[in-house]
Amino acid sequence: MLHPITTEHYLVLSAALLLIGTVGILLRRNAVVVMMSLELILNAVNINLVAFGKHLQQLNGQVFAIFIITVAVAEAAVGLGILIAVFRNKETVLVDEIDLLKW
């Protein structure tokens, strides 16, 4: 017997995505993968917003989600640009080898 999918299920999914994204940012070495983890976090937010929007029978949540997608794209575009600048100068995208700045 299958249970219907409720808002709670979406919230748990989004909390799990937030956790996976955070762990990915903190632990992964490759900067590209770190940026993908960043997208994962923003998608967790999107799931939250759309689920709440459906729960409340409103459009606000979905509109907010569209704005977040836009922002995520802008961030990824700038991020990849910066990553290319780093790669040109250092020939690596591994975050633990990018270590000029530390005390």
Binding site: I82, L83, A85, V86, N89, V95, I98, D99, L100, L101
Partner: peptide
């Protein structure tokens, strides 16, 4: 390089 790294 330090500026690149800071931005990243």
């Amino acid at each position: 390089q330090r500026s690149n790294e800071a931005a990243l």
